[in-house]
Design a protein around this nucleic acid. Structure first.
Lengths: 174, 174
DNA sequence: CCTGAAACGCGGAGGGT
DNA sequence: ACCCTCCGCGTTTCAGG
């Protein structure tokens, strides 16, 4: 028993995330302006202990960054769209990477399915979207695109630390 | 001239976002742990002045929240996917809203195009994804889904305050 | 919007379980 | 090995000009 606990402890120290870490991550993912004292009350630890864990979580990369979420509409970009890009080859990374120079482009994912690339973009106007699509078509190897305009956003949040019990109950090799 | 400046100032005070605000938003969207002193150096203001503007930007909703970005893989959710949901009707909002109870669901958008809903989900395993799809199919009025698994994420960031000069040069009614 | 002062919270050192 | 109590320092935050 004692040995088991020791193993579990060292496992967490090296790279594991325990339940307390998850609660801390949950609190910070909802509002990172909270003081460590406030979080310590929520998780049942002292403020320095929380600080220690947060430092570890930052160093390990579990917390990638803490950023301000900006309202697109209020900074002049009311239009959100997803663009699926069909490409001929695969290794077109250089010109695709160049797209991140555009602040309108928020996400770029390489995917399975009918398309090879999914982009999430936020633009000021239909004309700005047209300009962006034009830039995409300029890229060598782009066969075509499909654009899905967002009419309304029901939910938009960052990754959550928690996992649904029903969905995690099944063991699966990591 | 003086009158023009007065008008511009009052416009900013009421609801506008000026260039300084954009630079502050840019700094905070990259790293919200920066001190106001650091930001004040970047934008050429005093720390209290920056604080005043940030307070205003929070109150107006331009800054929706400041949150910690969590690495999905390190909290046991290595699989990112986009799910397109075809529905029969439109007003299925109640059961769709219920999906946000699942921490696996990060985004839900109502869209144009071949699909009616685009969801961004992050799950622990293919089996967890299957469970989530099962939940979606349980919803009344869901005709079908298309899932795009993310193979690699090239770029993933929150909304940027800046706008590409080429794309904003064209005037468009807001 | 800038300068000065007070309160708060952060971040480290040390000891205990 | 982890957590807690105590303390110096930087930052935030509010006053006045």
């Amino acid at each position: 028993m004692e040995k088991t606990e020791t193993i579990r402890s060292s496992a967490r120290a090296s790279r594991g995330i325990d339940a307390l870490d998850r609660r801390i991550l949950g609190a910070l993912s909802r509002d990172a302006t909270q003081s460590y004292a406030t979080i310590s009350e929520q998780v049942g630890l002292s403020a320095p202990a929380v600080h220690e864990r947060v430092k570890r979580l930052r160093a390990s990369g579990a917390i990638k960054a803490t950023v301000a979420q900006i309202d697109g509409a209020q900074v002049g970009k009311p239009i959100l769209a997803f663009i699926h890009v069909d490409t001929i080859g695969w290794g077109k990374t250089r010109e695709i990477m160049a797209l991140e120079e555009f602040p309108e482009v928020e996400e770029i994912h390489s995917t399975t399915g009918n398309t090879c690339l999914i982009m999430k973009v936020r633009v000021a106007s239909p004309h700005a979207l047209e300009g962006l699509l034009s830039k995409i078509y300029d890229i060598e190897g782009v066969r075509g695109t499909s654009t899905y305009l967002t009419l309304s956003t029901v939910l938009e949040r960052s990754a959550q630390a928690d996992v649904t019990a029903d969905l995690e109950s099944v063991s699966y090799p990591r």
